[in-house]
Simulated assay, not measured.
Amino acid sequence: GTRFLEIVQSQFPGVIKILISDRPNLEEAVYAFNNAGLDRYIAKPWEVEDLKFTVTSLLRQAAMRRTNERLLVDLQKRNTELREALRELKEAKQEVENSYLSAIQSLAVALEAKDRYTAGHSQRVSRFAMMIARGLNLPGAEVRTLGQIGLLHDIGKIGMDEQVLNKPGKLSREEFEMVKQHPVIGAQILAPVRSLEGHISGIKHHHESWEGTGYPDGLKGEAIPLPARIICVADSFDAMTSTRPYRIGRTVEEAILEMRRCAMMQFDSRCVEAFITILQREVKAEALSQPRAATG
């Protein structure tokens, strides 16, 4: 009876189990279904044809179950293979993007290195941009992104006439119009790199002006993406404090005065004040670290 079926269930759970009873008992049937994996309960009297139909039906169901199990195993295997293929594809795509980005960064560094007056500019802009981002209490991921944007902000100058880029005097109108294209060109260069989608607006709009007189789109105020506003301040500060063939770089104090003067005209005042706070803190810390002259 049911005890035998329980033993069969424990040893051979996939075996079809039919209980034929000459003493119909509801409790026995329920127990067998719940504890012995019973497939059918048949009480006397039974018809031979009905019994044949029951057995045939159960055999078909068992065959379908085995087929489904094989299909499920095959599907799981294929899913595993697909996940592995997607992982490898993602890694390969990342390697291509990293190689592309490394090539761009190398070109940017090589471009700056050709002129001793601009050497290191992007690295400094990157550092200043991260300082401003931290001063604005931006999340760590955004701070790192700003650092990357700073490194790449002038990438659009690749391929431009070096004589124009390094011209010691004032640019002609035609030359200036050409140089004004570098933010757009930079955005186009980085567009194929999907992982840099969040960098593009900061590069394309870092020459926009708070009062709307910048380029390329003449954006104004809060319409300018925050990364672009930050890069604008960082880029301008480095330009102010760097020496060029035609002028001596300003001191930090002079640059601070100029940034404050241009706040709400060229710059976002929040970015300016966040930067100045950190600059003054660093200048003070540097002064305190200097050895003092001995006295009487």
Rank of each mutant, 00 (worst) to 15 (best):
K90P: 00
E91I: 14
K93Y: 05
E95G: 13
V96F: 06
V96G: 04
V96E: 15
E97R: 05
S99T: 12
Y100M: 11
Y100T: 15
Y100P: 00
L101H: 03
L107P: 00
V109I: 09
L111M: 14
K114F: 10
A119D: 10
H121L: 14
R124P: 00
V125N: 05
S126G: 10
S126A: 15
F128K: 01
M131L: 13
M131V: 12
L136E: 07
L136S: 04
V143Q: 11
G147I: 07
G147D: 07
G147N: 10
Q148C: 07
I149S: 02
L151G: 01
H153N: 04
G156M: 03
M160W: 00
E162H: 10
E162K: 06
V164Y: 01
V164A: 06
V164R: 04
V164D: 13
K170Y: 06
S172T: 15
R173V: 14
E174T: 12
E175Q: 12
K180L: 09
P183V: 13
Q188K: 09
I189C: 09
L190Q: 05
L190P: 08
L196H: 04
E197I: 05
G198Y: 05
H199R: 02
I200K: 07
S201Y: 04
K204C: 12
H205Q: 11
E208D: 13
S209C: 12
W210Q: 01
E211V: 10
Y215D: 01
Y215I: 07
P216Y: 01
D217N: 11
D217Y: 05
A223Q: 07
A223E: 14
P225Q: 06
A228E: 03
A228W: 01
R229Q: 12
I230Q: 06
I231G: 09
I231R: 02
V233H: 00
